[in-house]
């Protein structure tokens, strides 16, 4: 992990401990790099939310909050699009079997909305076959 006070990297590949502070530092670097590319406020909002959800999933559901595990990040932030990949050391999951949290019968269940938000706010969200690595892309719309 680089010094988070230095210039945020527009592209990087890092692995950090499954620790909230270490994960926060990476999220901040990615968001700072997005900010440097002058993405519109709505785009920054979308990316922050999706990143938050994906990292929380990796930390909690994938890595079971275990500090001995790690989370891998790879990101590339360009003028017109950004992509971030987040990989945990968990057993993975099958996105297709996650129940729809907007089902009226499920509205009062407190959990299970992260994936919905990632898909709603990013242009594309793809999991690997094992379900422990997610790649999210945000494409800026033409002005």
């Amino acid at each position: 992990m680089s010094d988070s006070r230095s210039q945020p990297r527009a592209a990087a590949h890092v692995s950090v401990p499954n620790d909230p502070r270490a994960l926060q530092a990476v999220k901040e670097e990615v968001l700072a790099a997005v900010s440097e590319r002058a993405y519109p406020e709505a785009a920054a909002f979308a990316i922050r939310l999706a990143l938050e959800e994906a990292v929380q999933n990796a930390y909690q559901h994938g890595n079971q909050s275990d500090p001995a595990r790690t989370v891998g990040f790879e990101w590339r932030i360009a003028e017109k699009s950004m992509t971030v990949t987040i990989e945990d050391e968990g057993t993975g999951f099958t996105p297709g079997v996650v129940p729809d949290p907007t089902d009226p019968e499920r509205l009062e269940i407190p959990s299970g909305r992260g994936l919905l938000l990632m898909r709603a706010y990013m242009t594309d969200v793809q999991y690997n076959d094992r379900g422990n690595r997610v790649t999210m892309t945000y494409e800026r719309q033409a002005p």
């Binding site: 909002f45 939310l49 938050e52 009062e108």
Partner: peptide, 13 residues
Amino acid sequence: DHLSSAALGALIT
């Protein structure tokens, strides 16, 4: 300015 699904979960609780 920002909230996450965890915050929504807390509101549901």
